[in-house]
Design a protein around this nucleic acid. Structure first.
Ligand code: SF4
Ligand code: SF4
Lengths: 133, 133
DNA sequence: ATCAAATAGGACTACACAAGGCGTATATAG
DNA sequence: CTATATACGCCTTGTGTAGTCCTATTTGAT
């Protein structure tokens, strides 16, 4: 509960790595070996980050990945959103349509939790990749 | 991911309810019916909150629960910790012994995530039950 | 042309956790 | 004694996480 997935952690490690080598092209093999990350899992993460326009891919021999934007312009929240695919919410009513929660109309805590949700988003959005290199 | 469990939500709803009736004794049946919460699930949550000294139980007929401390002295973090039982951490190395993570020594993001963890704890700890009544 | 290196992506398994249901024991007011 | 209430363990079901395996496609180098 309240835990980041390994995929997100792997994504952050990979992005930080690319930033740390001055955005030189890096391969999945290289990163997975250096940080002992399962290569297939990391590969899928990189593909998602590519689709999310956070990194850029170069196919074929001598290919790999670079950052698609400057490290100062990538937040931890960006990485989480892209990898998870779904809206990040501390409660069902924030990540899906509110009516999905069977007790929505009776719920007395959605407003206060909304405030927490907002603060949470701020914490994740304000931390940029440039700060973790 | 990053979502509160229903147990925690139920616990918060229940605690807020008791606070809202000026700490008069309340039963599981009463609360579960009012907010449409499965009675068995709520019962277990209340038992955990009792063991965690957040509420006080009165057994037998005419029994029920009251708050064990003032609403201003109960934080959302207290409720989460007691109901979950385990340490709340956004990564494995914060909620268990660090060595459990197989890539701990190679991990380059544990320090920045530690900062996020700290901010997170502040957000949950600073919100008190008295603010959600 | 061929080969090797690299990304792209689908299918599948194993496991852990979340959510809830059920049954029974114990305490206590009236 | 009985009705009401908490205490607590066991079990099922569904969902999500983490990881493996396999194949296709792209592309630089020989
Ligand atoms: S409505 Fe209340 S209970 Fe339902 S998800 Fe939102 S917060 Fe949780
Ligand atoms: S060490 Fe790094 S990877 Fe392992 S849990 Fe902590 S943060 Fe996540």
């Amino acid at each position: 509960m309240l835990k980041l997935s390994k995929k997100v952690e792997y994504g952050l490690i990979a992005i930080r790595h690319i930033a740390s080598v001055n955005n030189h092209i890096s391969t999945v093999k290289e990163i997975s070996e250096k940080y002992i990350i399962p290569v297939d899992v990391l590969a899928k993460v990189m593909q998602k980050l590519t689709k999310g326009k956070i990194i850029t891919s170069y196919q074929g021999a001598m290919g790999g990945y670079t950052l698609a934007r400057k490290a100062e312009e990538i937040s931890v929240m960006d990485v989480i959103s892209v990898i998870e695919g779904t809206q990040v919410g501390i409660a069902q009513c924030f990540s899906e349509v509110p009516e999905n929660c069977s007790i929505y109309t009776n719920c007395t805590i959605k407003n206060p939790l909304g405030k927490i949700q907002h603060n949470l988003e701020h914490v994740f959005s304000s931390m940029k990749v440039s700060e973790i290199v």
